[in-house]
């Protein structure tokens, strides 16, 4: 399986890359799949459960919305099996907003993916927040015209997902907690492992690929680029503008906010503030301004209080 790094994600290395783009018409090429993720960079993708919330998110400046039946905080509270959302709800949201619409399917549930793709969703999230449908295999994402984003806790997991065809990655964090600690852990883990790989020679890379269960060619490409070879967003626990800016300063390309917006006291205001914080992530003055007077943040859960079998980040193989 060959892999083409998204165009200009990093400065081109050598003239060899020059004629990489095809002049022959191509639909759903990896370049346009990864390209949409490149267009989302520097933006905030918000979880919404109905048209009303989607419109609030769009008006706040979200660069995309994730349509789902329950936000992760409620999935966590309600328990039971969490599945893809009602197609009617997704279709209503697609019709209501002009920004891209994403939707979640269960890990390994390729029929949910076929259904969601047929609705005209712009991106599919094969998500650990829903109850996995397959405990060994993820979806073969090359089979789909619509691009996929997948979660990761570490470099090996990210590269396995990219090998399966994911055109975008998000660090998992721990969704529905309003606690950014796991997002930071996963982001730092990926970065540290990339730095480690960059220092290795080829024979060490072969061994490291085995160790982290990553495809060698993707590990080598990652080491060469010095970053994940697709767009990488932060997710899972971002609740404040400062959380969002923290993830950006740690090197993420953008931010998913799940329960953090609509489980807070003033969703529209908080959503606007997080959008500003992602653009101006390096400007503490702006961050102070937008953090002012936001009302109640979502309550938040300490990770140590969550029973081990209910940690979403452990789902995915």
């Amino acid at each position: 399986m060959t892999f083409a790094t998204p165009t200009n994600l990093v400065p081109a290395q050598g003239a060899a890359a020059l004629s990489a783009n095809s002049e022959v018409p191509q639909v759903a090429s990896f370049n346009v799949k990864a390209g949409l993720a490149q267009m989302l960079k520097g933006g905030v993708i918000m979880d919404v459960i109905n048209v009303e919330q989607a419109l609030i998110a769009e008006a706040a400046g979200a660069c995309a919305v994730m349509a789902l039946e329950r936000v992760p905080a409620d999935i966590r509270k309600d328990g039971g099996v969490a599945r893809m959302s009602d197609p009617r709800m997704i279709r209503e949201i697609i019709n209501a907003v002009s920004i891209p619409v994403m939707a979640k399917v269960r890990i390994g549930h390729f029929v949910e993916a076929q259904i969601i793709e047929s609705l005209g969703v712009d991106y599919i999230d094969e998500s650990e927040v829903l109850t996995p449908a397959d405990e060994s295999n993820h979806i073969n994402k090359h089979d789909h015209k619509v691009p996929f984003v997948c979660g990761c806790k570490n470099l090996g997991e990210a590269l396995r997902r990219i090998n399966e065809g994911a055109a975008m990655i998000r660090t998992k964090g721990e969704a529905g907690t309003g606690n950014v600690v796991e997002a930071v852990r996963h982001c730092r883990t990926v970065k540290a492992e990339i730095r480690k790989a960059q220092l290795m020679d080829d024979s060490e890379l072969f061994t490291y690929a085995k160790e982290i269960q990553a495809p060698y060619h993707l590990l080598k490409e990652t080491a060469k680029l010095g970053r994940l070879p697709v767009v990488n967003f932060a997710a899972g626990g971002v609740a404040t503008p400062a959380d969002a800016a923290l993830m950006m300063q740690l090197g993420c390309d953008g931010v998913f906010v799940g329960s953090g917006v609509f489980k807070s006291g003033d969703p529209a205001k908080r959503a606007r503030a997080i959008v500003q914080a992602v653009t101006h992530f390096n400007d503490p003055k702006v961050l102070a301004e937008v953090s002012e007077d936001l009302g109640e943040a979502m309550v938040g859960i300490n990770i140590s209080e969550i029973p081990k079998d209910q940690l979403y980040a452990t789902r995915g193989w």
Binding site: E23, A28, V32, I94, E117, G120, V121, D122
Partner: peptide
């Protein structure tokens, strides 16, 4: 349409250097 309909196609662009060579047009939503 939506992302499924995004595509790449060659274009003739008026005034480009080496104008006979198609320019790779990347159309995303």
């Amino acid at each position: 349409g939506t992302q499924k309909e995004s595509f790449e196609a060659g274009l003739h662009v008026e005034g480009l250097e080496d104008a006979k060579r198609l320019f790779p047009g990347v159309f995303i939503r």
